[in-house]
Design a binder for these strands. Structure first.
Lengths: 121, 121
DNA sequence: AATGATAATAGTAACGGTTATCAATAACGA
DNA sequence: TCGTTATTGATAACCGTTACTATTATCATT
């Protein structure tokens, strides 16, 4: 299961993993795939990337990085980490009613080069 | 409908709006609420805030701002905009296979003061 | 080998949130 | 007033995920 996710060069969802793994364990069930993926993310071997507009994606890349999404085709790509202002979390904490601010979720949107060329035609 | 969302001092979801509006239009349907909320966001009068782990929230505040979420109770609060590095989008564009990078989604996580006090007990 | 306790699994039902469908009603214009 | 178009309420379908349950592995102990 881990191998299936790790071999993906994109960000597979549970169904993709299910189909991959089914080739070796033909009667595995989708529920087992979900359980295994949840266990792997709990162990930190992969990362679950929850989305509002579609299935969760499972990211073989556990290094610090962000994602960018093409708003035309929906494709998702990794981007390297960005240096954010050092005092950002602290200033957010001061500006809010929060006792602790320690998580940031950052993602980008745009048009991938493939889509940009398509619309140029 | 607009009034219902605007009067909320939090970020209501469709069901909340539905219950509010039902008091004045008793047999309105949830579908109509969804349609109206979608129309209002299309017009820019409110903003839809799509989430992975629960219903969409509708934000009466259309000014530039971000959100912070308490990972204990789930409550969501507005935070004022943060000044991000000027060259951020451009550097992401260079680091990616994207022709255009023009959207940023940023949100914060932490523990709200109410939850912080609860766990102190 | 046989047993029993424990865990894992497949299959499927249920769930929550949203969207689609469609007949009935309302609004509008000639 | 009539016919056309748009809007609505009611409900079914949808999608991704989780819960449930009966069955099957697993495995240590006799």
């Amino acid at each position: 299961m881990l191998a299936a996710v790790k071999m993906a060069k994109h960000h597979p969802d549970a169904k993709w993993v299910y189909e991959k793994v089914s080739r070796e364990i033909p009667n595995i069930s989708l529920g087992t795939v979900y359980r295994a993926l949840a266990a792997l993310s709990a162990e930190g071997l992969i990362r679950e990337y929850r989305r509002a507009d579609g299935p969760s994606l499972y990211d073989p890349n556990t290094e610090d990085h962000f994602h960018i999404r093409c708003r035309s085709c929906g494709r998702i790509e990794d981007v390297p980490p960005v240096q954010l202002p050092d005092d950002m979390l602290e200033s957010i904490r001061r500006a809010s009613e929060f006792a602790r601010v320690d998580q940031v979720r950052l993602e980008f949107g745009g048009i991938c080069s493939a889509c940009a060329e398509k619309t140029r035609e």
